[in-house]
């Protein structure tokens, strides 16, 4: 991992080279996170590039990216570690004779027990430990970027379980003791705000809110992602999308959707936006039937 980041501008420029165009606020968050060794909680509407930010940071820092997708019911076994039960059972079956040999000639139950005890925690050792993303991040050989995606989808308990990791970069496993991070990871948490996260979690993180970009930034983003699109079309397209976002829609079009749309228009060899064409490609931008119907009605005024 790159150890020294010189300035906010360096972060921004490097992101731009990768095609992740961002404002100073976002670059500042990455800079401070790396300097202060603190996790970043990224919030914002869907599709503004929250997950992308973690990927871009990993590329910039030349660090491996470890990703944990959260969902309702996610627990330690899936996030942190699990014992390889199948392997444990298989070994027990195969080694049955070995055990029998070991226990041969044991005078009574007590001795047999103590002999078994001498075997140590053979079945609860590294061999049978299946590391999941969080443990992988702690035991990585170089400092990784850890992305905990959509943390708001996980349960309250899981959030509480993360606190130890986020503040001290360590985790307690009952059978193994406390595992400290070999190299402190840079942690990104993303949230779509489907529920309010606890204050304790927020307190431990830098908080970055990424809103929908303004028109000029969105044009830059599309220029970076779809460079083949002509300048005039880009401008028209961004203006149209920005107008859509001011409407009262069930789901507003995100950046990722305007990029998709730009690609589609390019594929159709479109030079400028025509109502008929917009009408037929609207489903790339809007994902709800009622939204499409609403916009279709207003299309002439929106394209003005």
């Amino acid at each position: 991992m790159k150890t020294r980041i010189l300035s906010v501008a360096e972060v921004r420029d490097s992101f731009a080279r990768q095609g992740y165009v961002c404002n100073d606020q976002i670059a500042m968050a990455v800079y401070l996170a790396a300097q202060l060794r603190k996790p970043v909680l990224v919030e914002g509407p869907p599709g503004v590039g929250k997950t992308e930010l973690a990927k871009a940071s990993a590329a910039f820092l030349e660090a491996p990216l470890i990703r944990l997708q959260c969902y309702e019911g996610l627990d330690e076994a899936r996030a942190l570690y699990e014992w390889k039960y199948g392997k444990q059972l298989l070994y027990t079956q195969l080694l049955r004779e070995q055990f029998a040999g070991k226990l041969d000639g044991a005078g009574g139950l007590e001795e047999a027990m103590s002999r078994l005890g001498d075997l140590g925690d053979a079945f609860y050792s590294e061999t049978f430990l299946e590391p999941r993303p969080l443990l992988q991040a702690l035991r990585a050989d170089e400092s990784p970027v850890l992305l905990i995606d959509e943390v708001d989808k996980a349960d309250q308990e899981f959030e509480a379980f993360l606190l130890e990791l986020l503040s001290d970069y360590q985790i307690s496993i009952p059978e193994l003791g406390t595992v400290r991070a070999r190299h402190e990871p840079l942690v990104f948490l993303t949230s779509n705000n489907s529920r309010e996260l606890s204050d304790a979690l927020k307190r431990r993180c830098l908080h970055l809110y990424i809103p929908y970009p303004d028109a000029s930034l969105e044009q830059q983003i599309i220029a970076a992602r779809v460079p083949e699109a002509p300048q005039a079309l880009r401008k028209q397209l961004v203006d149209f999308v920005q107008k859509l976002r001011t409407l009262d829609l069930k789901k507003q079009p995100a950046i990722s959707e305007s990029i998709d749309w730009a690609r589609a228009l390019l594929l159709l060899h479109v030079e400028s936006l025509e109502p008929a064409l917009v009408d037929s490609t609207l489903n790339l931008l809007l994902k709800h039937e009622e939204d499409i119907r609403q916009v279709r009605d207003d299309l002439p005024s929106l394209l003005k």
Binding site: D24, M28, L32, V40, E43, K202, R203, L206, H207
Partner: peptide, 14 residues
């Protein structure tokens, strides 16, 4: 820059 930086650590919702 200071405003952006402080905003990251002091304000934790939209």
């Amino acid at each position: 820059a200071l405003k952006q930086g402080l905003s990251l650590v002091l304000a934790k919702s939209e």
